[in-house]
Design a protein around this nucleic acid. Structure first.
Length: 617
RNA sequence: GGGCACGUAGUCUAGCACGGAUAAGGCGCCAGCCUUCGAAGUUGGAGGUCCCAGGUUCGAAUCCUGGCGUGCCCGCCA
C-alpha cells in the first residue's frame, strides 16, 4: 500500500517499517519519507503529508487498518482493533499447542552437537550454559520445521582419562557417597599435583594411555567402566535440566572404526593438502591455508592434520568427524542403546559391535562450542572447503558462546575452581532458595508439592539466566544474580501463567458460544493481543538470524527470553487493570478468550525455553 | 606481532546485523497500591559524557577511521 502511494518498491517499504516507541503514536510506523527525501530532495515532512491523503483513501478497503496519521515525517498506522484481535485469537485457538510453529524449514535436517564435556568430572555451570543453549536452539529449530538430531561427543581417550585410570589403580575402591562424576572430578584435581611434580608419574600415565588404545587391555576395561559410570552421572544432571540426546559419539569408537583412515585417504586426494618431504613438518599431513584469502597473510599457513607418526591432531579428528556428520563418508559405526532417558526415548552410543544404523544426510551441522574455539573451528570448516565440500563448509556452524566464570578466574577442571559451582550444586542451592519462597506462600501444602514446585522454579531460573544473557557476553557468575526470583527472571513468566490458569480454572468450560472480541478495546488488552500475535515471527526471526559471522554463528537466545518477559509484563498489566471474572457479561467472555490465548502462547514459549510450566507456585 | 569479542545510570544488562521519534528493562534506592480473578505482582520517582577523539549523514548508542581499557585465541600440546 505504501509502495503504491509513493511509487517505490515493496522492499524499501518493508525496510522502513518499525514499531513506534510509544503505542499512542501508532501500531506500526514507516520512515519511508526519510528515504524518499534523499532521492526527491524534498523535505521529509512534506513528502509524508503529501502521501497521507492517498493512504487514507486506500485504507478504506483494508479491514485490518483503522487509520493513518503523520507526525512530522513519520507515517503512523493504526490497526482496526476488533478485526486484528479476532484474527489473532482465532489463529491461536486453532493452533493451540502448535501455535508459534511454522513449516518454513520443512524437510530440512540438522545435526547439533553439545555439550561434549570430558567424562572425567561433573558439569560446572559453564557446561550448563552450553547444554542449555544447545537444547533451546534445538527446540527453536524444531519449531520452524527442522528435523533435529542431538548429538553428544564423549572423549574417552584423552589424557584426563589416562590420568584417572592411573589414579584409580593406586587407591582402594572406596568411593564414598559422592555422585560418581563428582568423585572423579575431585580425584582429577588430586592427580594434577602428582602428575605435574613427578616425571615418573607422567611416564606411567603415558603407559596407561597406550594401553587404552587396546580395547582388550585391563586398563581399557577399567576406563570403559569408569567412563560409562561418569557419563551416566553427567546425564543425571542433564535430565534435571530437561536435556536429552539422540546419540553419543565415543572417541574410542572413532579410533577403532576406521573413520580416521577413511578420512585421511579422502584428505590426501585434495590438491592443497600434502605431505612435506623436508622442513620442520616433514612427514606430517598439512593443509595449505594460504590459498584462502583470509589466511594468506599467516606467518605459517600450514595446518597439521596428521602428525609425522601418523596420528591425528585435534583439527584432523574434527575434520574426520565433520565429514561423517555430513554423511560424506560411509558410516563406520555400530550403535547400541546407552540408556533410556526420562523423556521416554533412549540415547544411543557408537560402538564397535552393535547394530548398523543410517543417520542419513544433514543439511546443516551445528557445533555448540565456546567462542575461544573459534579459530580451530574455522580451520575445520576451511579444510572442508579446501577438499571441495564448499556447500558443507558453508553449512557448518560454530554456535559460539562466551564462558561462565567467577569474578577473577575461570572454571578449571585441573585446578578445581569448579568446586562449589557444579551444575548439581547450583541446582541444589537454587532449589533450597526456591523452597523458602514456596513455603512462605504455601505453608499448608504437602512436602511433595513444595519440593516439586521449588524444583520447577529452580530449573526455570537457571535456564532463563543462561538464555537471557546474550551468548557473546561473558557471564560472571554471582549467586544473588543467577538465583534472583524477582523481575526479569523465569518465575515471573511462570507466575503470570499460573495466574492465567487460575482464572480459567474458576469458570466451568461452558459451551463456547459466539464471543464478541470487539469488546476488547482497552490499550492493556490490545497490547497483549499484539504481543501474542508476534510469537510465531519471533521464533522464526531467531532461526533466520543464524548467519555466519567472522567469529562464529550467533544464536540470539536472549530474544526469546525478552519476548517471554515482555509477554508476561503485558499480561500482568492486563491482569491488574482488567478484571475478568467480575466483568460484565460479554466483556467477561471476550477477556476469557484472551486469557486462554495468553495461556497457550506462554505455555508454548516456556516449552521452547525449556522452562517448566508451574500450575501453582 | 596478528586476529576476535566486549565497554551503555550505583550495579547487571537490552538495543548495534538493516542509522530515525523522549536511549529500554531488571536489581538496588525513595514514595504509593492487597475486605476486588494470586503482592514471585503493580503505579510513580530519583539516577545517563551510550569508553574517548574525529568522520559520514537532515539524523549516530548503531556505520567508518584512529586511540584507550578488559577478556580470549593464534602448537606435531590436549
Amino acid at each position: 500500500m505504501l509502495a503504491k502511494a509513493s511509487a517505490t518498491t515493496n522492499e524499501i517499504v518493508l525496510g522502513s517499517i518499525e514499531v513506534p516507541p510509544d503505542s499512542a503514536l501508532g501500531d506500526l510506523s514507516s520512515t519511508l519519507a526519510f528515504a524518499l527525501a534523499k532521492e526527491l530532495k524534498k523535505n521529509p515532512g512534506a513528502i509524508a503529508s503529501e502521501m497521507l491523503p492517498k493512504l487514507q483513501k486506500m485504507i478504506e478497503q483494508e479491514p485490518l487498518i483503522s487509520k493513518v496519521e503523520t507526525k512530522g515525517p513519520y507515517i503512523n498506522i493504526f490497526f482496526e482493533r476488533a478485526a486484528f484481535t479476532d484474527m489473532t485469537i482465532t489463529s491461536v485457538s486453532n493452533a493451540e499447542n502448535t501455535y508459534g510453529q511454522s513449516s518454513h524449514f520443512k524437510d530440512k535436517r540438522v545435526l547439533i552437537e553439545f555439550p561434549a564435556v570430558n567424562p572425567s568430572k561433573p558439569w560446572h555451570i559453564g557446561h550448563a550454559r552450553n547444554a542449555i543453549l544447545g537444547d533451546t536452539l534445538s527446540n527453536i529449530l524444531e519449531s520452524v520445521g527442522y528435523e533435529v538430531v542431538k548429538l553428544d561427543y564423549i572423549n574417552d581417550l584423552g589424557l584426563q582419562i589416562a590420568q584417572l585410570v592411573w589414579k584409580l589403580k593406586q587407591i582402594s575402591a572406596d568411593e564414598g557417597e559422592k555422585k560418581y562424576d563428582h568423585y572423579l572430578g575431585h580425584l582429577y584435581v588430586e592427580v594434577q599435583e602428582t602428575f605435574d611434580s613427578s616425571e615418573e608419574v607422567q611416564k606411567e600415565v603415558r603407559e596407561v594411555s597406550r594401553h587404552l588404545e587396546n580395547l582388550q587391555s585391563d586398563d581399557a576395561k577399567i576406563s570403559g567402566e569408569m567412563v560409562r559410570r561418569c557419563v551416566e552421572a553427567q546425564c543425571q544432571t542433564a535430565y534435571k535440566l530437561g536435556i536429552y540426546h539422540n546419540y553419543q559419539v565415543w572417541e574410542s569408537a572413532i579410533a577403532h572404526s576406521g573413520l580416521l583412515s577413511l578420512a585421511k585417504d579422502m584428505i590426501l586426494q585434495c590438491d592443497n593438502i600434502f605431505k612435506p618431504e623436508d622442513g620442520d613438518k616433514a612427514g606430517c599431513i598439512v593443509a595449505n591455508l594460504s590459498v584462502i584469502d583470509e589466511f594468506k597473510d599467516m606467518k605459517d599457513p600450514h595446518k597439521i592434520l596428521f602428525r609425522s607418526d601418523g596420528t591425528r591432531t585435534y583439527t584432523g579428528a574434527d575434520v574426520a568427524l565433520q565429514l561423517w556428520k555430513f554423511g560424506l563418508v560411509k558410516d563406520p559405526f555400530h550403535y547400541a542403546v546407552f540408556e533410556d532417558q526420562p523423556n521416554g526415548k533412549s540415547v544411543k552410543r557408537t560402538t564397535l559391535e552393535g547394530e548398523d544404523e543410517n543417520l542419513g544426510k544433514f543439511d546443516i551441522v551445528l557445533n555448540v562450542i565456546a567462542s575461544r574455539q573459534a579459530h580451530p573451528q574455522k580451520m575445520v570448516y576451511t579444510v572442508l572447503d579446501l577438499m571441495g565440500y564448499t556447500k558443507e563448509s558453508e553449512n557448518s556452524h560454530h554456535i559460539a558462546y562466551e564462558f561462565v566464570g567467577l569474578e577473577d578466574e575461570d572454571f578449571s577442571g585441573r585446578h578445581g575452581t569448579w568446586i562449589g559451582y557444579s551444575t548439581d550444586d547450583v541446582i541444589d542451592r537454587a532449589t533450597e532458595m526456591a523452597m523458602v519462597e514456596v513455603d512462605k506462600r504455601n505453608p499448608d501444602e504437602s512436602d511433595e508439592f513444595k519440593n516439586n514446585v521449588a524444583n520447577q522454579v529452580a530449573i526455570g531460573a537457571i535456564r532463563y539466566f543462561m538464555l537471557n544473557a546474550s551468548p557473546d557476553r561473558k557471564i560472571t557468575f554471582r549467586w544473588e544474580q543467577a538465583l534472583d526470583f524477582n523481575g526479569d527472571a523465569a518465575p515471573y513468566l511462570q507466575y503470570s501463567l499460573a495466574r492465567a490458569r487460575r482464572i480459567l480454572e474458576k469458570i466451568q468450560s461452558d459451551a463456547k458460544g459466539k464471543v464478541d472480541l470487539g469488546k476488547l478495546t482497552s490499550d492493556a488488552e490490545f497490547e497483549l493481543v499484539k504481543a501474542i500475535s508476534r510469537f510465531p515471527d519471533e521464533i522464526l526471526d531467531v532461526a533466520k538470524a543464524l548467519k555466519k559471522d567472522v567469529w562464529g554463528t550467533g544464536f540470539i537466545s536472549n530474544r526469546i527470553t525478552a519476548y517471554g518477559f515482555g509477554l508476561a509484563t503485558l499480561f500482568s498489566k492486563f491482569y491488574d487493570s482488567c478484571p475478568v471474572l467480575k466483568a460484565e457479561t460479554g466483556v467477561r467472555e471476550a477477556r476469557l478468550a484472551l486469557v486462554e490465548s495468553f495461556k497457550i502462547t506462554m505455555t508454548n514459549c516456556l516449552k521452547i525455553l525449556g522452562i517448566p510450566v508451574v500450575d501453582r507456585m
